[in-house]
Amino acid sequence: MRIFLRSLIARLALAAVLPVAAVSFALAGAGNAEAQQMPPGAKQPSEFPRVKLTVGMFVVDAAVAANDPDREQGLMYRTQLAPNEGMLFVFNENAVHCFWMKNTLIPLSIAFIRADGTITDVDEMQAETTNNHCPRNNGVYALEMSKGWFQSKGIKPGMKIQGLPQPQ
């Protein structure tokens, strides 16, 4: 009887542990969901160069997309951004640069910026859409942040962004 009870207790303990282990395994995999969603050849978020920008009294930690492949990928496939994290797009020409949100999983706000750092336009963009978002003015930079970031910080056209890298 004692052996039977030990065996029964061992089986019950194992039955209690297996679901916990399965949930733990599933949760551990969820932490890598962003990496798993990136298609082969896509740049991981940590692989983009970064720059600290100042907008009013706020500091932005921005990944920099300054070449065609990086600008094409942008924030595609990302599932989240830190509170003051964004992506700065740097262009080699002063022009109207339009954006869309194909394969971009999170809604974003975008500020279009002149070479001198002046914000010319701010727009809100819905996730996974192909609507064009174009500024009314020429510019050299665009800064994408989580949707509503500029409005919540009181950042508007006419304000300047400091710390912008020079276009190449």
Results as ranks from 00 to 15, higher is better:
Gly41Cys: 13
Ala63Ile: 02
Leu27Phe: 12
Glu124Ile: 05
Ala35His: 04
Val90Phe: 07
Thr130Gln: 02
Asn132His: 09
Ala16Glu: 05
Val140Tyr: 08
Ala15Trp: 09
Cys98Thr: 05
Lys153Trp: 03
Ala66Ser: 15
Thr129His: 00
Met38Asn: 13
Pro19Ala: 14
Gly86Arg: 06
Phe91Gly: 01
Cys98Asp: 07
Cys98Lys: 03
Ala21Lys: 08
Trp100Gly: 04
Ile161Val: 15
Val59Gly: 05
Val90Ile: 15
Leu108Trp: 07
Ala66Gln: 14
Gln168Tyr: 10
Ala115Trp: 14
Gln168Met: 09
Leu18Ser: 08
Thr79Cys: 01
Glu85Trp: 12
Gln37Tyr: 11
Ala13Asn: 08
Thr120Leu: 01
Leu27Trp: 12
Leu8Ala: 12
Val59Trp: 05
Phe91Glu: 08
Ile161Leu: 08
Gly41Gln: 09
Lys153Gln: 13
Tyr77Gly: 00
Lys102Gln: 02
Pro69Thr: 11
Lys52His: 11
Asp61Met: 03
Ile106His: 04
Gly139Tyr: 06
Asn137Tyr: 10
Ser7Pro: 01
Arg50Val: 03
Ala10Arg: 11
Arg136Pro: 09
Leu53Met: 08
Gly41Ser: 13
Ala13Ser: 12
Ile106Ser: 00
Glu72Phe: 14
Phe112Met: 04
Gly31Ser: 04
Ile119Thr: 01
Ala16Tyr: 08
Thr104Asp: 01
Ile110Tyr: 12
Trp149Met: 07
Asn84Tyr: 15
Glu34Gln: 05
Val90Cys: 10
Ala62Gln: 05
Gln162Asp: 15
Ser46Ile: 09
Arg78Val: 01
Gly163Ser: 07
Phe99His: 00
Ile110Gln: 07
Ala111Tyr: 02
Asn84Leu: 10
Gly31His: 04
Leu105Ala: 06
Ala10Asn: 14
Ile9Leu: 14
Gln126Trp: 00
Phe89Cys: 08
Leu27Lys: 10
Leu88His: 14
Lys43Met: 14
Ile110His: 10
Val96Cys: 08
Leu12Trp: 11
Phe150Gly: 03
Val122Ser: 02
Ala15Leu: 14
Cys98Gly: 10
Pro19Ile: 15
Ala111Leu: 02
Glu34His: 00
Leu53Ile: 05
Arg6Val: 09
Leu27Ser: 10
Ala10Val: 05
Ser24Glu: 14
Met125Cys: 06
Leu14Ser: 13
Pro19Gly: 08
Phe99Asp: 00
Ala65Asp: 02
Gly41Glu: 13
Met159Asn: 10
Lys156Trp: 06
Arg50Lys: 14
Ala66His: 15
Pro135Thr: 03
Val23Thr: 13
Leu5Asn: 04
Phe150Ala: 15
Gln37Asn: 14
Pro39His: 07
Phe89Trp: 04
Arg71Pro: 00
Gln36Met: 09
Pro167Thr: 11
Met38Lys: 11
Gln80Tyr: 14
Gln44Lys: 05
